[in-house]
C-alpha cells in the first residue's frame, strides 16, 4: 500500500509539474521561438486557400455586438472629426500605388456598397454576428493600382494603447483582394458607432477579430512590414499573436 501511495503521489507531482515546466520552457527564448514556427506552418498551409466566410440571415444578428478593442480614440483630431460627423475625415491610400488616393467619407458612401452578415470570431473565443455595409477593399485597390511588387496593405488606425502605441494591421494582397474583405461604414444598418470604429473599420471575416482594425485612417501599400513598429505586421502580432489569423 505504501508503494501505491508513493506511486500515486509521484504521478500527482508529475501532473502538477506540467505547468511549472511548461512555464519555464515558455520563458526560454529558443523554445519560445521554436513554438512559434508552428504558426508559419499553419500560414503556409492555410492562407491561400479559397473559401468564403459563411453568410447569415438577419435573424442571426447578435443583439449586443461586444466592444472589445483598444479604447475609442480620445485625441483632439478624433474629437474634432466626431463633432462634425466625420465630414473632414479622409482615408488616405498611399505607398506603392500608381495613384495615391484621398477619399472623403462622402466619396466612400457614394461608391457601390456591399452588405455582408458575417460572424466576427474573437481570438479570445467569443463570436458575434453583425450586418456590415461598406466598400469592398478590392474596389479601392483597383482605383489605386498597387505596384506589381506590392505585397502587403498596412492599415494605420487612430486608436492607441495606454503606452501611446498606435494600432495597425496588415493583410497580404490576396487577403486584401478577397471578395469579403470590406471597409465597413455601417453596422446593422446604421453608421458605425464611435466605439465600433467610426467612421471606417476593416472587416476580414475569414480571420480572427484582431485583423478587423477599427478607426482606419490610412492604407499604405508596402513590400515589407519589417520596419514598422515591432516588425510583425500588426499591433497584436507585435505582442506574440500570429500574423496569419485564420486559426
Amino acid at each position: 500500500m505504501k508503494r501505491r501511495l508513493f506511486l500515486a503521489s509521484s504521478i500527482a507531482a508529475a501532473l502538477a509539474g506540467c505547468s511549472p515546466i511548461g512555464t519555464a520552457l515558455n520563458d526560454n527564448a529558443g523554445f519560445h521561438h521554436a513554438l512559434g514556427l508552428e504558426g508559419s506552418l499553419d500560414a503556409a498551409l492555410m492562407e491561400n486557400l479559397p473559401g468564403l466566410a459563411r453568410e447569415y440571415s438577419i435573424a442571426d444578428i447578435s443583439k449586443n455586438f461586444p466592444v472589445d478593442s483598444l479604447p475609442t480614440p480620445t485625441s483632439v483630431t478624433y474629437d474634432r472629426l466626431l463633432a462634425h460627423d466625420f465630414q473632414s475625415y479622409t482615408l488616405a491610400v498611399v505607398g506603392a500605388v500608381e495613384r495615391p488616393l484621398s477619399l472623403s467619407l462622402a466619396q466612400l458612401q457614394r461608391m457601390p456598397q456591399q452588405t455582408q452578415i458575417t460572424r466576427h470570431d474573437c481570438v479570445e473565443g467569443w463570436s458575434a454576428i453583425g450586418a456590415w455595409t461598406g466598400v469592398p477593399l478590392r474596389r479601392i485597390l483597383q482605383f489605386a493600382r498597387p505596384h506589381r511588387d506590392a505585397r502587403y496593405a498596412i492599415f494605420r488606425c487612430m486608436d492607441r494603447d495606454d503606452q501611446g502605441t498606435p494600432y495597425y494591421e496588415s493583410l497580404d494582397m490576396a487577403q486584401a483582394y478577397q471578395a469579403q474583405t470590406l471597409l465597413a461604414l455601417r453596422l446593422n444598418g446604421e453608421a458605425i458607432r464611435p466605439d465600433h470604429g467610426a467612421p471606417v473599420r476593416l472587416r476580414v471575416p475569414t480571420q480572427l477579430g484582431y485583423k478587423s482594425a477599427k478607426w482606419v485612417r490610412e492604407i499604405q501599400i508596402v513590400g515589407s512590414f519589417a520596419h514598422l513598429y515591432g516588425g510583425k505586421g500588426g499591433y497584436w502580432e507585435d505582442q506574440g499573436y500570429e500574423w496569419y489569423a485564420g486559426i
Partner: peptide
C-alpha cells in the same frame, strides 16, 4: 495558474503551445 501553460495569463503563448 498551476493548471495552465504558461502559469501566468498569456493567451498568445497558450495558443502557440496548443497548436504546436
Amino acid at each position: 495558474g498551476w493548471l495552465t501553460i504558461p502559469a501566468y495569463q498569456d493567451l498568445a503563448d497558450g495558443r502557440r503551445w496548443h497548436f504546436f
